[in-house]
């Protein structure tokens, strides 16, 4: 079976002439079906650029991104949108919910755009809301609910179109520790149910929920840690140790 995501030597250069800046430099890696991969690195290392490029929100200057063998770096604007809608799910640090829509409406938006029948939409949204414990707030507006509830709404929206791959960008960044742990357990649970997740974080605790962690520094992949059969606490310690080697430039804690 083909890898879900295959990244081949991508580069991203900003600026023109003498003042160019390489945010990504020869990055290659693979993510298989059912993985839960964390991307870590200090601020400015290129984490967000990498995520944006993979998420097709930004385009790489060079290199290929293959999703199930299909090169998405070569798709045009409209097909990219469709691809994003049908195959990718997003969870952001600041939730990115639309405040003029109710929780239910926020979740069903991707389905509405894909012209899914009303009955099917309703069934899917209700099922997801029940699973993530937000069924009682479906008709409330984002400003009426808590941060944790907002993030669970965002998770539901990411999942509603049955994506192949979920991108999470610092999903716990704005949450208190209780809500953050809840969310991470939810993600881990999703992963066990065969959803592939790629999460960008600089929080070692959040990263310890992953099965594999990739480190990125100065636009390059530096190394990777694999959890294997280690317990989460042991893995957490390993990540912290790894970060400690990075020295003073680290902002992981």
């Amino acid at each position: 079976m083909e890898s879900l995501l295959q990244v081949n030597a991508i580069e991203k250069t900003y600026g023109k002439g003498n003042t160019t800046f390489k945010a990504l430099n020869d990055v290659s890696f693979t993510i298989e079906h059912g993985e839960f991969v964390g991307i870590m690195g200090p601020s400015g290392a290129g984490k967000s650029t990498l995520l944006n490029v993979l998420a097709t929100i930004d385009t790489p200057t060079a290199g290929d991104i293959l999703v199930e063998g299909k090169n998405i770096a070569k798709l045009d604007e409209e097909s990219l949108s469709d691809f994003r809608r049908d195959h990718l799910g997003f969870i952001f640090q600041d939730y990115n919910l639309l405040d003029s829509l109710t929780v239910r409406e926020n979740i069903l938006l991707p389905l509405a755009v894909a012209k899914t029948p009303v009955r099917e939409t309703r069934v899917k949204v209700d099922a997801l809301a029940k699973r993530f414990g937000i069924a009682s707030i479906l008709d409330q507006y984002p400003y009426q609910i808590s941060g944790g509830q907002k993030q669970r709404t965002a998770v539901c929206r990411a999942l509603v179109a049955d994506p192949k791959l979920i991108f999470a960008d610092e999903p716990t960044g704005a949450l208190d520790s209780k809500s953050a742990t809840d969310l991470l357990q939810t993600l881990a649970g999703l992963n066990e149910a065969e959803t592939t997740i790629m999460m960008v974080t600089h929080d070692a605790y959040a990263a310890s929920f992953c099965r594999r962690v990739l480190y990125i520094q100065d636009g390059k992949l530096s190394h990777e840690l694999i959890r294997g059969s280690k317990s989460r606490d042991v893995f957490y310690q390993a990540i912290l140790d790894e970060l400690a080697k990075g020295g003073a430039t680290d902002d992981a804690i």
Partner: peptide, 15 residues
């Protein structure tokens, strides 16, 4: 920012 969210969620420019 709202339209930026829509773009990220995969809603096309046309829509």
């Amino acid at each position: 920012s709202k339209y930026a969210v829509l773009r990220k969620v995969g809603i096309s420019k046309r829509d």
